[in-house]
Design a protein around this nucleic acid. Structure first.
Lengths: 239, 239
DNA sequence: ACCTGGCCTTGACGGGGGTCAAGTTCGGGA
DNA sequence: TCCCGAACTTGACCCCCGTCAAGGCCAGGT
C-alpha cells in the first residue's frame, strides 16, 4: 500500500533538517534519524494518527499538508494547526508517552517520515543542545496553544481581523488603497482555521467591509485601515 | 515590602522537592535551587506575572493558591488553571524565553520561591534525567491545553458533566444512591473554572438534575448515573 | 429573634453564531 | 454557447449563554 525506502532519501533528509524541533543537531545525528525513518506516501484524506491510540511513533512531513483537529461529540471539527513540509506530527504525544490527544489527517497527497519515539529520546541524550532546542520548542507550543484559547474567546469578526492583521504583516503588499493581502487558502478552509463555518465567516467579512476596514475581491483582500483592524483583533497596539 | 531569606528555608525546599517539573533531580541540585531562590510572601490578590512582560523569572508555589488567566478585551477572565503548593509558576514562559503569555495572581495569601530562568537551564544541563522529566512534563502540558480547547467547544452542561465525572473518579465515595462527590470549591469558583458564570452553571446543574443524572445538596453532589454522565462529558467510554 | 450581606437560584431579555435553505458567481467542459 | 457544479453569499430561524434584575437561603453579628 505504501513504499518503504532502504537508503535514506534526499527529500527526507532535507525535511528532517528543516524540522524546527531539533534545529542545531549535527548532520550525523539527523542522517541517523533519516535512515531509521520509515517513509510513507499516502493520498489526500489519509488518517495519520487517531485520537486515543497509544502514541508510540511520531512523524515529520516531507511533502504535502496535514491538519490536526478534534472531533466534537457531534462530529464537528476543531482545527488546531495545519502542517506542511518540515513540521513534526504528533511529537508531543510521543514525548508525553500517553495517547494521541487529537486526530491528524492529510489534506493533500503527502510523504511522511515515521520514527519510533525512542529515536527522539536517543537523539536528545546523545546531543544535549538538541534537548534544549526541543525544550524551548515545546514551551513555545504551549504558548501558542495559550493564544488559541485566547482567540477562541473573541467573536468571529475579531478572530478574522486578527488573522488578516497577522497575514498583512507576513505577506501584505502596499497598494494605492492600502495593503493587498492574499488569503492563503479558500474561504471555507479559513473558516475552519478560525473555528467557525463559511456562512459566519462570510458575515464577518461583510461586517469588516461595512466598517470600511477592508475590501474583498475573491481571495484577495485590501486592508484599508491596518490600525483599526489590529485593535479589533484584540489588543495589539502600535508600540 | 516582602521578606527575602538568606538560609534555604525548610518549606521552600519541601515545595521544590514536590514540584513535579523536575521530579527525579538529586537532592543536591534541588538544594542548590532552594538557596538560589528569592522567597516572597504576598497577600491575596497579588499579581504574580503580567501578560506581555519579559519572561526572565519563574516561581514555585510554596504555600497558598494562585490563578492563571487571560484578560479578554472587555475585562472578562478566562481561567486556565489553579496553582497550589508545589506547582510551578510561569515556567513555560521562562523556557520559551519570550514574554509571559498570561496573567497570574494569588487567590490566597501565598509564598512563592522565585528563580531566574538560567537556574533551570543549568539544572537541566547538570542532570540529564531532569531534562527528560521536564520534557515529558511540558509535553503533558500541551496535551492538557489541548483538552482545554476541546472542552471549550462543548456546551456548559457537558463541561460540567465532564468535571463531575473526573471529580467522581478522583474523590467520589459510594453511597446508597450513587457516587457522593464533593465539589472542591464554591460554585462561583467552579463556574469560572469551567469558563462560564454562576447563573449559567446553576442552569447546567438544573439540567443535569432534571435528566436524573445527579442530585445536588449544596457543595455535595450525588452522581446517579456515572455512565450517562461520562458520555455527556464527551466521548469517555468505559474501556 | 432580627437584620444584613454572601452565595446561589430563577426569570426575562438580547446577541452571537450555527444550521438549513435558497440564491449567486464563476470557471471548466461538452 | 450553454450547462453544471463548487465555492461563496444571504436570509430566516433557533439555541446557547451572558447580562440584568429579583428574589431565596443561609450564617454571623448585635
Amino acid at each position: 500500500m505504501t513504499a518503504d525506502t532502504t537508503p535514506p532519501r534526499q527529500d527526507v533528509k532535507a525535511a528532517l533538517h528543516e524540522c524546527r524541533l531539533w534545529r542545531g543537531a549535527s548532520d550525523a545525528a539527523i542522517d541517523a534519524l533519516a535512515s531509521a525513518a520509515r517513509v510513507k506516501e499516502v493520498p489526500r484524506g489519509t488518517t495519520l494518527v487517531t485520537e486515543g491510540e497509544p502514541a508510540d511513533h511520531f512523524g515529520v512531513m516531507v511533502t504535502g499538508k496535514a491538519r490536526v483537529f478534534h472531533l466534537g461529540a457531534d462530529g464537528r471539527r476543531i482545527t488546531f494547526e495545519t502542517l506542511s513540509a518540515g513540521d513534526p506530527v504528533a511529537v508531543v504525544a510521543a514525548l508525553a508517552g500517553g495517547r494521541y490527544p487529537a486526530h491528524a489527517e492529510t489534506v493533500t497527497p503527502a510523504t511522511i517520515a515515521w520514527l519510533p519515539r525512542e529515536a527522539l529520546f536517543e537523539l536528545m541524550e546523545s546531543e544535549p543542545t538538541v534537548a534544549r532546542t526541543v525544550m524551548t520548542n515545546l514551551a513555545n507550543r504551549v504558548v501558542g496553544l495559550t493564544s488559541v484559547v485566547q482567540t477562541l474567546a473573541l467573536d468571529v469578526p475579531a478572530r478574522l481581523a486578527r488573522y488578516l492583521f497577522q497575514r498583512a504583516l507576513a505577506v501584505g503588499t502596499p497598494s494605492s488603497q492600502g495593503l493587498e493581502v492574499d488569503l492563503g487558502m479558500p474561504k471555507s478552509e479559513l473558516a475552519a482555521a478560525l473555528g467557525t463555518v463559511p456562512e459566519t465567516l462570510s458575515r464577518a467579512f461583510a461586517k469588516l467591509r461595512e466598517d470600511d476596514l477592508v475590501e474583498v475581491h475573491g481571495k484577495r483582500v485590501t486592508v484599508l485601515d491596518v490600525r483599526r483592524l489590529a485593535s479589533l483583533g484584540s489588543g495589539y497596539s502600535e508600540e
